[in-house]
């Protein structure tokens, strides 16, 4: 489904600040994988996503989506197969437009024509899809999205993304900016959608136990490399302690405080 070959990204090449954010990463994501990704701050998780989506080009290496080399394709072209949610709930929706307008814009990927698609039937369809969120949004379809809370906005973004039927979804700490209650709601919604729509998913989280509990496969990143890749039985048997031990084993480093690097939730 997705293949990364010898992918690397260097920022500010040739300056004193030269920074290799991704170093020779090789990864194959299979159809139906639900991958959780952990790693300390600055280990390159977001950069990996930005390379997959084409926010910027890789310094070296190639990216294949469904066998096609997309390494030099602009972001908007790749976006047709990729759904992405950011940590900041403001980035997923247009705040000065109504819920229904937002949902209409994101319903179909690609160039939009001069058709008026937002009609009564479409509204009924959107309303029906909003009900399961259990946030009462189905009664607020004419309200501006700017009036919603962060949790409501992120849940809406998630729903909108799912309805656009992407082949791969990338979630970048998409619950980190929410309060614990809303974070849990959005996370539950995420797992429900992933199952219901059989979505191939990559989810970055800063929470180790979450990374263990959710998903079918777990990646750990450090200094721009994927240092751990487990799935199946091996993943099911993981615990936070085992994960920390593994990290030390691989890196042969000792840390005064593990929590400083990998916060446990």
């Amino acid at each position: 489904m997705i293949r990364l070959e010898h992918l690397s990204k260097v920022f500010q090449t040739g300056t004193v600040n030269e920074n290799a954010a991704i170093r020779d990463v090789n990864l194959t994501v299979k159809e139906g994988d639900f991958i959780t990704i952990i790693g300390s701050n600055g280990s390159g998780k977001t950069t990996l996503f930005n390379l997959i989506t084409g926010t910027y080009p890789p310094t070296e290496g190639n990216i294949y989506i469904r066998g096609k080399d997309v390494s030099r394709e602009p972001e908007f072209k790749r976006a047709r197969y990729i759904g992405r949610i950011f940590q900041d709930p403001l980035l997923g929706t247009a705040s000065n437009m109504s819920l229904e307008d937002n949902m209409m814009i994101t319903y179909r990927k690609g160039f939009k024509g001069l058709k008026v698609s937002l009609n009564g039937k479409m509204r009924d369809f959107f309303r029906e899809k909003l009900v399961p969120l259990q946030m009462g949004l189905e009664d607020r379809m004419k309200d501006n999205v700017g009036l919603l809370s962060g949790g409501q906005r992120q849940a809406l973004t998630l729903l909108m993304m799912v309805l656009s039927q992407p082949a791969l979804i990338l979630l970048d700490e998409h619950t980190a900016a929410l309060d614990p209650k809303n974070a849990q709601i959005v996370l539950d919604l995420t797992t429900r959608f992933v199952e219901e729509y059989k979505l191939t998913t990559m989810m970055i989280t800063h929470n180790m136990s979450q990374a263990i509990r959710y998903g079918t496969r777990l990646l750990m990143m450090d200094l721009g490399e994927i240092i751990l890749d487990v799935e199946g039985k091996e993943k099911q048997n993981l615990t936070v302690e085992k994960l920390v031990d593994k990290f030390h084993e691989i890196r042969e480093k000792t840390f005064v405080s593990d929590e400083a690097l990998l916060s446990q939730g």
Binding site: P74, E75, F76, K77, A79, R80, I82, G83, R84, F86, L90, L91, G92, T93, A94, S95, N96, M97, D101, N102, M104, I105, T106, R108, K109, G110, F111, K112, G113, L114, K115, V116, S117, L118, S164
Partner: peptide
């Protein structure tokens, strides 16, 4: 009110959302 018009409106507000939608801004 057309799909194109709505997308134009969203672009002024949040161009990232429109790019993520697969539209060439």
């Amino acid at each position: 009110r057309t799909d194109l018009g709505l997308t134009l409106g969203a672009m002024g507000n949040n161009s990232q959302m429109v790019i993520t939608q697969g539209v060439n801004i």
